[in-house]
Design a protein around this nucleic acid. Structure first.
Length: 433
DNA sequence: GGCGATGATTGTAA
DNA sequence: TTACAATCATCGCC
């Protein structure tokens, strides 16, 4: 302490009070009757003031108060404080100042980015987030998943609210504390040398402290979001059986394309839309179905018969309707949206193909797979309904399209969905190849 | 609780 | 990338 005092005294003794005219010309009267007309006199003057400042703690309270008041009123005080501030700037504070130039914290940036991506920070978008929407889309888009999705969104909104409330609190506290400290320092600057720069620096320190608290808040929020997200994703992992209707649609497609049960991307998309599941779920379903069908054809016989009959009934109705339309000389009249809604040309093709398939020329490799698959269905359905039996290995149904290795022939995938349930406007011809 | 059915995942091959 | 095959994990029925 004494060393510091000596250093300051020494510094002051030789200093030119930059920016403050303590040298000749000011005409300042000596504080204690000293005649300070030359440099030595002024030095002595400043020395006295400093001595009084340094020894103020040794005095009684009243004495100190009186001295303090005297010093405060001293006309040299601003200049002296200015010099002290300058010295402070040039010594310790400048070192601290260099340390303050922190680069942006990468961790904080990561946290900010994540909070923004999750929809916690940034502009509110209906309380949800893109991540939640994507997660919900991946979940399959069913009713259950939308319940989970809304639950996820509600929880995320809760996190968001807590985050913003806490953030607001921190900011308010930071501002209050900053104002308080600034006032305090301004107040103190009357009795000790504090430059505006120093106040500014102090404000910076306070802000940094508060931003570190904010970072903790952000980190906690991120953790909460991660936990919520993982729980949500875990919930999605739970297997849920598809709806009966969805399974029927998929089965109908499968058995009506048995010779080539590989739906194209478009077909998958259409099936996904119809079944309210995702395309990947359609792919999974077909993958599972193919393998399980192949492994145990016998087991699926009944199912195949069922769907074939269903398809045939639908087709028969369509044909009947078409014939009726034809007889009524109104071939372009569409069906009125009933289940028997195949268009005439398609149904006609099916029957023609079926007739050709009854003959000896029935070769999967020779006939377009889609045509063949429709032939499968119709022939099978007819066999079931009218006792048709072509003497194939399986009395009711034959997986003739499976090759020797138990795999399907590598036929091109159909371009679109052909479902017996489709309306007149949405029938896609599988015979187009 | 056992068991079959079924949707999802993973590793591999083409 | 896609399909296959094996496997896992859960569902739903008994």
């Amino acid at each position: 302490m004494m060393e510091e005092q000596a250093r300051i005294m020494q510094a002051l003794s030789g200093v030119t009070l930059a920016g403050h005219s303590v040298q000749g010309g000011m005409g300042l009267p000596p504080p204690h009757g000293h005649e300070g007309t030359d440099g030595d006199g002024r030095k002595q003057d400043i020395g006295d003031i400093l001595h009084q400042i340094m020894t103020i703690t040794d005095q009684s309270l009243d004495e100190a108060q009186a001295k303090k008041h005297g010093l405060n009123c001293h006309r040299m005080k601003p200049a002296l404080f200015s010099v002290l501030c300058e010295i402070k700037e040039k010594t310790g504070l400048s070192i601290r100042g260099a340390q303050e130039q922190d680069p942006p914290d990468p961790q904080l940036m990561r946290l900010d980015n994540m909070l923004l991506a999750e929809g916690v920070s940034g502009p509110e978008k209906g309380g949800g987030s893109a991540a939640a929407a994507a997660a919900a889309a991946a979940a399959g888009g069913g009713a259950d998943s939308s319940i989970e999705h809304s639950d996820y969104r509600a929880k995320l909104t809760q996190i968001r609210q807590i985050y913003h409330t806490e953030l607001e609190k921190y900011e308010q506290a930071c501002n209050e504390f900053t104002t308080h400290v600034m006032n305090l320092l301004r107040e103190q600057s009357r009795t000790r040398p504090i430059s505006p720069k120093e106040i500014e620096r102090m404000v910076g320190i306070i802000h940094r402290k508060f931003s570190s608290i904010q970072m903790q808040l952000k980190q906690s929020t991120c953790e909460a979001v991660m936990i919520l997200r993982s729980r949500f994703l875990d919930a999605r992992r739970k297997r849920r059986n598809f709806s009966k209707q969805a399974t029927e649609i998929l089965n109908e497609y499968f058995y009506s394309h048995l010779s080539n049960p590989y739906p194209s991307e478009e077909a998958k998309e259409e099936l996904a839309k119809k079944c309210s599941i995702t395309v990947s779920q359609v792919s999974n379903w077909f993958g599972n179905k193919r393998i399980r069908y192949k492994k145990n054809i016998g087991k699926f016989q009944e199912e195949a018969n069922l769907y074939a009959a269903k398809t045939a009934v639908t087709a028969t109705h369509a044909v009947a309707a078409a014939i009726h339309n034809s007889q009524a000389n109104s071939p372009t009249t569409p069906n009125s949206g009933s289940s028997a809604s195949f268009s005439l040309p398609n149904s006609g093709d099916m029957f023609m193909n079926m007739q050709s398939l009854n003959g000896a020329s029935y070769q999967g490799a020779q006939v377009g797979d889609n045509v063949q698959s429709q032939g499968d269905t119709i022939r099978h359905a007819i066999s079931q309904t009218v006792g048709y039996n072509d003497g194939l290995r399986h009395p009711m149904y034959s997986p003739h399209s499976l090759n020797g290795n138990g795999g399907w022939h590598g036929a091109p995938t159909p371009s679109s969905v052909t479902s017996p349930n489709e309306g007149p406007g949405s029938v896609h011809s599988d015979t187009s190849n």
